[in-house]
Design a protein around this nucleic acid. Structure first.
Ligand SMILES: [Mn+2]
Ligand SMILES: [Mn+2]
Ligand SMILES: [Mn+2]
Ligand SMILES: [Mn+2]
Lengths: 142, 142
DNA sequence: ACCCATTTTTAGCCCAGGCTACATTTGGAG
DNA sequence: CTCCAAATGTAGCCTGGGCTAAAAATGGGT
């Protein structure tokens, strides 16, 4: 067994990365579903296909996985609704995404770049780093 | 066709993310291969399996793709060597990774967290954001 | 009421990146 | 030299997340 090594074991890092990737799609989807619902009342698969730039079939299959995992509910040919769990994750995801976005702006990055980079970075930011980003943004221009 | 929209179209963002993911494994592998070579002269598949916490079969298949894409060269039962292209990508990847890591430290994040988060964030940082991070780190403690 | 455009579903394909089980090769210890 | 442990390769499986083509359902406009 051996005592727990205190330096981060490299394999651990990558396990985290793989775990992040597994939840990444779920986070982006529930956030997008929530967005669409705010914008136009209900969310349909076709809305997500446009938003993500993928085919409607890909959306349909992904929604199947999200349903299986308890994030969304649908009936055949019906709209896509978030479960309680889905709403919670959507709120957290949007919050975190926004913190990262505002942080990049505060760092001096342009809006377009901040929008693009935050979309990927958000999924790999721990609580600790998120807090540090908030602190910086507040101090810088709050 | 329509005129190019100037606000970042949401689907564009996600296309970037998907592209980043496609190169992510290649970047981490060539960086790791370079690391191992520095540490112990030659790099073998087992070294990478340990480092990434995956089976040697997964490494073998991944190395096959990297060979196909011109990043590495191997002979049967031989060590893993980087091509010129592979070395270039490894150097760039390490450089960028280090900038992100140092930046997180400068932001006030702990070493463990910085190590973990930088491993994921590095792949989603544009040149512009990377420059902003360098600027901040230099100003903060350079 | 009907028709048709839009939407969703289904079938079937691809590739990346995981795995286990088993076969083969290699090189060093004795 | 021989043998065996370690490394590598091969076969076959899985899931996620992409795609196209074609079928089926829905619902709004006339
Ligand atoms: Mn998001
Ligand atoms: Mn995202
Ligand atoms: Mn790296
Ligand atoms: Mn990485």
């Amino acid at each position: 067994m051996g005592l727990p090594v205190n330096q981060p074991e490299h394999s651990r890092l990558h396990e985290r990365i793989r775990a992040d990737h597994a939840t990444e799609v779920a986070e982006d989807y529930v956030e997008a579903i929530d967005d669409v619902q705010r914008e136009k009342g209900i969310c349909r698969a076709v809305d997500l296909a446009r938003r993500f730039g993928v085919s409607h079939v890909t959306v349909s299959r992904t929604i199947g996985r999200l349903t299986r995992d308890g994030y969304v509910e649908t009936e055949p040919y019906g709209p896509i609704r978030l479960t309680t769990k889905g709403k919670r994750v959507a709120t957290q995801a949007r919050n975190r995404h926004d913190i990262v976005y505002q942080f990049l702006l505060a760092l001096g990055v342009g809006e377009q770049t901040a929008a693009i980079d935050s979309e990927g970075i958000e999924h790999h930011v721990s609580r600790e780093t998120l807090r540090a980003m908030e602190r910086f943004t507040r101090r810088d221009q709050g």
